[in-house]
Simulated assay, not measured.
Amino acid sequence: MERVNRLIKWRLMSYFYKNTIKAEWWKRHEGVFQEIMVDSGAHTFHAVAGKAGASNQTAKKTKAPDPIQYTHDYCKWLQDYKDKCTYIELDVAKVYGWPLQVHLREIFDAYNLDPLYVWHPTNSETLEDVCGKKDFIGIGSSYNKNAKILSKILAVCEKHQTRVHVFGYTGLENLKALVHHPAVYSVDSSSWSAGVRFGVCYVYERGVLSMYSKNTFPKRFGKMFNKTSNTNLLLWNASQWQRYADYLYKISPKTEWNSNPSVFP
């Protein structure tokens, strides 16, 4: 993974695996990434509840911590690293309900922390309200596949000059159009790791990132895909995604209120 880290400019990590990102990790990677985003690990809570696309098998194997104590621990951990990253709230309203989400935000306030809020149309607050409080918010991944809904959300954010991070966006065909939107600051996707999981390979060429299986991999690249190890395939895909991210960064519109968009592999 260290070799992958050296290829990636924008890094998304999860607090749930905090044991791997201690003080020495931050020191070792100082200056390696242009920007670091720390996720709260909320997906684990969704997995236990069988929500957010998590499989029943995942739910059976995973036991979620107490969300209140977990948030306290997260806030304490952030005291040492809050100035080194963008950090995300524990987004569990869909699992535990809106009143608990409000309480968890109050815990962040008590620690004098200002996390990235994640907005869902099902939240008991309007998008207008959250844009009035925040100049940078996240959009839940369960809605980003609906182009019409996402377009309406981004239009409201643009009106308020609120930057947006789009979580878990995997649609290659629409990614270029998405980052062209003035409100979109950043996007994350785990698709770059699909080579190891699903046996696919990505190739970046002239502004286009294409995905190939072993059967469709271009012959001009020789037998690299057929012979490569999982580690080399992971490194290759990470490098191709980073090249695509560099291209998207270059072509993305820059404004006074949203001047540094990026893609987090």
Rank of each mutant, 00 (worst) to 15 (best):
K133H: 07
D114H: 11
L104A: 10
V130W: 07
G97S: 09
V130I: 15
E106L: 08
K134W: 05
P115Y: 03
L127V: 10
G97I: 00
L116F: 13
C131D: 10
N123C: 15
G138D: 09
V118P: 08
V130N: 02
I107H: 07
I107S: 05
W119P: 01
T122G: 04
D129Q: 11
T126W: 15
L104F: 09
G132W: 13
Y111N: 02
A110G: 14
V102F: 00
H103F: 01
Y111S: 01
T122L: 05
E106F: 01
K133T: 13
E125Y: 15
L116Y: 10
L113E: 01
P99H: 03
V102K: 14
H103D: 10
N112M: 00
P121V: 11
E128M: 05
L113I: 06
D129G: 03
D114P: 02
T126L: 10
S124W: 05
I139T: 04
T122W: 11
I137M: 05
Q101E: 10
E125F: 14
A110N: 12
K133P: 01
E128R: 09
F136V: 08
D109L: 06
D109R: 15
E125G: 07
Q101H: 14
G97F: 03
D135C: 07
I139W: 09
I107E: 09
G132R: 12
N123W: 11
R105L: 13
I107N: 08
G132S: 12
D114V: 14
L116S: 11
P115L: 10
I139G: 07
G138R: 09
D135E: 05
A110R: 12
E128C: 03
V130M: 04
L116G: 12
K134F: 07
D129A: 09
I107R: 08
E106H: 14
P115H: 06
L100P: 15
T126I: 12
S124R: 13
G97A: 04
K134P: 02
L127F: 15
F136C: 08
F136Q: 02
Q101C: 01
D135P: 04
K133C: 08
W98N: 05
N112Q: 02
H120A: 02
G97E: 07
D114K: 07
T122C: 05
P115M: 09
D114Q: 04
V118H: 13
A110M: 05
Y111I: 04
F136Y: 13
N123A: 15
C131E: 11
L113M: 10
N123D: 15
P121Y: 11
H103M: 03
Y117E: 00
K134L: 03
P115F: 08
F136R: 00
A110F: 00
I137L: 11
S124Y: 04
L127T: 09
F108N: 03
L113G: 03
L116C: 15
E128D: 12
G138I: 10
C131I: 15
F136L: 12
Q101F: 06
N123Q: 13
V130C: 05
Y111F: 10
K133G: 02
